[in-house]
Design a binder for these strands. Structure first.
Lengths: 130, 130
DNA sequence: TTTGACCTTCCCTCCATGGGAAGGTTTAGG
DNA sequence: CCTAAACCTTCCCATGGAGGGAAGGTCAAA
């Protein structure tokens, strides 16, 4: 398979496939005489794995480790869990951050007339109460 | 005031102050003969405004508009509200995204032994069920 | 043989932030 | 008066995850 076909099958576009190869996240593809990358079903499988991990918000650094643990049939699951736990913490941190931003924004939006008059609680809030 | 002092007072570091000037978010500072930027209390005020807006997650593009509306005493509050509403939507989108990631991760973490054995529901989940 | 759809590498862009180099200025102390 | 430290300046580079697009090579079908 050429890169375009594997891109369709894995739903990871060719640009990203090349980048992942460069970053050592997926194995280097073989080449035809003309230099075209060649892929098999196995590569589609790896790329789907990467894609799913991205959808769960893992960083590429994490994914690199996850792929290598996944391919190592004798990995200790503790290593995988560790990565997942760190990610869980990070997601919780972001969740709290966004929730607290939203709390403020909701309040501001609620109290702003949103008409042609200049009075605006949003600007008042931003205007250095801190 | 030199840039360092204003950085301390506004809690925006000098690197960022220069960048904000470059991007037209804050007015261009005057210069001494030697080329040092000179600031007043008013600039501290603007920088605090910018900082607060960043803390609420607004993009620099939005902040540029917010600063200009803030300085225009006859702005219609509708324009401010519009920016805030868009941001609110974006924050809600991100919130949902993270919540759904967390739901999955929480489940996976809960079910992974996290020991020396290789069985791992986390890797199983990533392994292309999709 | 030509055309169009592929493929290759290379560089640029986004966003917000920061590191660090190389060099000029100012201030305080000896 | 001289030196050292603490400033300041501009410049380029990096991050992370994605993508645009140029310039050029290759392959397949008509």
């Amino acid at each position: 398979m050429n890169i375009g076909e594997v891109a369709l099958m894995s739903e990871v576009n060719s640009k990203m496939i090349r980048r992942y190869e460069e970053q050592g996240i997926i194995p280097k593809a073989g080449r035809t005489d003309a230099g075209y990358r060649q892929y098999s079903e196995k590569d589609v499988h790896i790329l789907r794995f990467v894609k799913r991990a991205r959808e769960l918000g893992f960083s590429m650094k994490d994914i690199k480790q996850l792929v290598s643990l996944w391919r190592n049939k004798s990995r200790p699951s503790a290593q995988v869990k560790n990565i997942a736990l760190k990610h869980q913490n990070e997601l919780e941190r972001k969740l709290n951050e966004i929730q607290s931003m939203l709390k403020t924004i909701n309040n501001l939006v609620k109290n702003c007339h949103g008409d042609e008059r200049p009075d605006c609680p949003i600007l008042n809030e931003l205007d250095c109460h801190k």
